[in-house]
């Protein structure tokens, strides 16, 4: 295999899948590729795709953040509760953004400083921050935001692009540059690949993880505020279940769940695939719940298929000659996410 094909193989496959999905969708509706429809496709899921960009950082770093949807709801609820209590609106927005960052910092402290597994910490966050949102808004729907805020969420800002969409487009480019072109970005890969090695090569692992988890919370909080602006009101169940789509977007994009590999190009392509599949299923009149099931299948396949392919490749190449690279997406740990964080703990076996 030539070098470029090996390096960009997954992204090429994604591009192929995307073209297939687009062809199917165009056959369902000839207006599918119209500019406005493409923009609408993004606009309806803008919060998810924004969070997916930062989730890529978290997973490359070898961690996971299951709490993002709950943090979205929490920060949106802070906004709504402060607004309902009569606070100046600018202050409410600022507090909401700060809430997201503090939620991320809080979880990051347990992960980075205490060394607890992010899976459990953010699972506690998934339940706890949703609970915090419920405490703030109970079972009401709080709205009546200032007009400029609602317009910011719903109307185009520049040309046909809304504020959220602009934020996403700028964000993914900046994120790609940080991830692939800066020492900080490279240190994420080293930590995700092997945090021991990272420590010995002088990377401040704890600080880096703290920064990434805090940013994840901040971006989730920002997405929550955007969601509030787009919907015009906030409820306690805002964004519930979004983590499924967000994690699927990142893993399908070729980011290894074990950390240490993946590209922002892949994440961008898989965002397009997930959005267009949901849109196409909608065109074919499938219910939202059905779409969720399809995303579930996609999530499992996005890890299963590369595993099977690389196992098949390894079997074929066995014998003389160097072993082919495993593609970085397989594991010999029997398929467990938490293995890498596990220090050789004493067995309690009799």
């Amino acid at each position: 295999m030539p070098e470029w094909a090996r390096r960009w193989g997954w992204e090429l496959l994604l591009a192929g899948i995307l073209i297939g999905v687009l062809i199917l969708n165009v056959s369902l509706s000839p207006f599918y590729l119209g500019v406005q429809n493409v923009i609408n496709t993004f606009q309806l899921s803008i919060e998810k795709v924004i969070v997916a960009v930062i989730m890529a950082f978290v997973i490359v770093n070898g961690e996971i953040d299951l709490s993002v949807a709950s943090v979205m709801a929490f920060s949106a609820s802070v906004l709504a509760a402060l607004h309902a209590a009569g606070a100046p609106f600018g202050l409410a927005v600022g507090a909401a953004l700060l809430t997201g960052a503090i939620a991320g910092l809080f979880q990051g402290f347990f992960v980075a400083r205490m060394g607890l597994p992010s899976l459990t910490v953010t699972l506690a966050g998934l339940i706890g921050f949703r609970g915090a949102a419920r405490i703030l808004v109970e079972d009401q729907s709080i709205g009546d935001f200032p007009e400029w805020f609602d317009r910011l969420g719903q109307d185009p800002l520049v040309g046909r692009l809304s504020f959220g969409l602009l934020l996403f487009l700028v964000g993914i480019v900046v994120a790609g540059i940080i991830l692939h072109r800066t020492p900080f970005g490279r240190s994420l890969y080293v930590i995700g690949d092997n945090s021991e090695v990272a420590r010995f090569s002088g990377i401040n692992v704890a600080r880096t993880k703290l920064i990434v988890m805090t940013s994840s919370g901040f971006v989730a909080g920002l997405a929550g505020v955007l969601f509030a602006a787009r919907l015009g009101s906030v409820r306690g169940d805002l964004g519930q279940g979004f983590e499924l789509d967000i994690i699927t977007m990142v893993l399908l994009g070729g980011v290894s769940i074990f950390g240490g590999s993946g590209t922002m190009v892949g994440v961008g392509l898989s965002i397009l695939i997930v959005l267009n599949i949901r849109n196409g299923l909608g065109l074919a009149r499938f219910a939202i719940t059905t779409q969720t099931g399809v995303i579930g299948v996609l999530l499992i396949l996005s890890v299963l298929v590369p595993n099977l392919v690389s196992r098949f490749a390894r079997r074929r190449h066995r014998g003389p000659g160097p072993a082919p690279p495993s593609g970085g997406r397989t594991t010999d740990q029997g398929g467990d996410l938490r293995g890498r964080e596990h220090e050789s703990q004493q067995a309690t076996v009799e």
């Binding site: 996971i64 899976l119 983590e243 499924l244 994690i247 893993l251 769940i257 074990f258 219910a287 719940t289 059905t290 969720t292 099931g293 399809v294 995303i295 579930g296 299948v297 999530l299 499992i300 890890v303 299963l304 595993n307 099977l308 196992r311 397989t330 594991t331 029997g334 398929g335 467990d336 996410l337």
Partner: peptide, 27 residues
Amino acid sequence: ALVAYGRVPAIIVTLGTLAIYRTWLIE
């Protein structure tokens, strides 16, 4: 089977089947 033989991490498999089983029930 997906975790043990497909080598897909449990969190991914069961996050997926959480959605898939529920969708099947709704259908």
